[in-house]
C-alpha cells in the first residue's frame, strides 16, 4: 500500500489535469489554477524544512569543526541577523518593505550588491568558456568560431563598417539555421515531456516515489 496509494493519487491528479485542459466548464474549469494555489501553500510550509536543513547542516559543521566551518558561522550569523532585522522591521513598521528599515537596509546594501557581483562574474566566465569552445582544432570548432565571429560583429555598429552585409548575414544565421536547431530541440523536449508525463500518470515512472 505504501506505493499503491501515491500511484493512485498521481494517476487521478494527472488525469484530472489533462481533462481540465480541454473542459472549461465548472467544476473542472479553473482546477489547474486551484491546484497551483495549493502547490504554493505547500511550498510555503516546505520553506520551514529548508530552514531546518540549512541550520542543522551548518551547525553540525561548526560543532564538528569540519573544513571550512568559519563559512558556516557566517551563514548562521547572517540568517539570524536577517531574521532579527525582519522581526524588528515588522514590529516597528508593520511593513517589511518599508524604505529605511533595517530589513530593507540588508536587502539593498548587502543582498543586491552580492547578487550583482555574482551576475557580473558571468562576463569573465563567458570569455573563458568561449575561448575554449572557439579554438579552431576541428572542423566543427572552426565553423563555430566563424559563425560566432559573424554574429558578434554583425550585432555591433563596427560590423556594418567592416562590411555592410554583415548585419544581414547575422540576421540570417539567427533566423534560419539557429532557429531551426532551436525548434528541433523544442519539439524533442515537448514530445519527451508528453511521454514522460504519460509514464508518470500510468505508473511506469516511479523514481519520484523512492
Amino acid at each position: 500500500m505504501k506505493k499503491e496509494i501515491p500511484l493512485a493519487i498521481t494517476f487521478l491528479t494527472g488525469v484530472i489535469i489533462v481533462v481540465t485542459f480541454f473542459i472549461p466548464h465548472q467544476p473542472l474549469g479553473g482546477m489547474q489554477q486551484r491546484l497551483l494555489i495549493w502547490y504554493s501553500i505547500v511550498l510555503g510550509f516546505t520553506l520551514l524544512l529548508g530552514v531546518d536543513s540549512l541550520l542543522r547542516s551548518n551547525l553540525q559543521k561548526i560543532m564538528r569543526r569540519a573544513p571550512g566551518w568559519p563559512y558556516a558561522v557566517v551563514v548562521v550569523a547572517g540568517f539570524l541577523a536577517t531574521l532579527a532585522a525582519g522581526i524588528h522591521t515588522w514590529a516597528t513598521t508593520k511593513d517589511l518593505l518599508s524604505l529605511g528599515s533595517s530589513f530593507m537596509y540588508i536587502y539593498t546594501y548587502m543582498i543586491v550588491p552580492l547578487q550583482a557581483t555574482m551576475f557580473a562574474l558571468l562576463a569573465f566566465f563567458i570569455a573563458s568558456a568561449a575561448y575554449r569552445a572557439f579554438r579552431a582544432r576541428t572542423l566543427e570548432a572552426t565553423l563555430l568560431l566563424v559563425t560566432a565571429a559573424i554574429v558578434m560583429l554583425g550585432r555591433v555598429p563596427v560590423g556594418a563598417e567592416i562590411w555592410d552585409k554583415l548585419p544581414g548575414l547575422q540576421d540570417w544565421i539567427m533566423e534560419i539555421p539557429q532557429m531551426a536547431a532551436k525548434r528541433g530541440i523544442f519539439i524533442g523536449v515537448a514530445l519527451g515531456t508528453i511521454a514522460m508525463s504519460l509514464r508518470v500518470i500510468l505508473g511506469l515512472e516511479r523514481t519520484y516515489l523512492s
Binding site: 540549512l54 547542516s57 552580492l114
Partner: peptide, 12 residues
C-alpha cells in the same frame, strides 16, 4: 546533511 538546502536566491 549532504542533501541539504542552500537558498532560494539564484546567485546565492
Amino acid at each position: 546533511g549532504n542533501v541539504s538546502f542552500l537558498t532560494t536566491d539564484q546567485f546565492g
